[in-house]
């Protein structure tokens, strides 16, 4: 294999597909084993997602602390609640745990926060 004659080769990489993985639905916790049946999202639908309008202040607001299930999340959010009690006592905080595992959706919880007129959510801790 003489190393100096010039050759043309093909590119080995796949092509960007505009298709993204989406978190698995609540009723099927845990990573669904076959990539073919996992829920997917595409560029267009993702670009339509809008962020919510922000609050003018946290004073007097109802903030949900949502624990996603990674080790240390509960303790961290409890310390967070402690901080609000000491520094912003008017902020009402509610601690909630997401069902299933860190990778699954929890529509009932979001519905509950909405129904109870939660003003904001602090979600964590990933890592």
């Amino acid at each position: 294999m003489t190393r100096n004659n010039v050759v043309t080769v093909l590119d080995p990489r796949g092509q960007p597909s505009g298709v993204f993985g989406r978190r698995s639905s609540g009723d099927n916790p845990g990573t669904i084993l076959s990539p073919r049946v996992r829920p997917v999202d595409d560029r267009e639908s993702m670009e339509k997602l809008q962020m919510a309008e922000r609050l003018d202040t946290l004073e007097g607001k109802l903030i949900y602390l949502v624990d996603v299930g990674f080790p240390g999340s509960k303790e961290f959010l409890e310390e967070l609640a402690e901080w609000f009690k000491e520094n912003m006592p008017s902020v009402k905080v509610v601690y909630k745990q997401k069902k299933f595992d860190p990778y699954s959706d929890d529509p009932e919880l979001w519905e509950e926060i909405h129904a109870n007129k939660g003003d904001g959510v602090i979600l964590g801790v990933g890592g």
Partner: peptide, 15 residues
């Protein structure tokens, strides 16, 4: 939360 319920969310991830 943000898009569907219009509730601002602050996600926390370790550094």
């Amino acid at each position: 939360m943000e898009d569907h319920y219009n509730i601002p969310t602050a996600p926390i991830v370790t550094a």
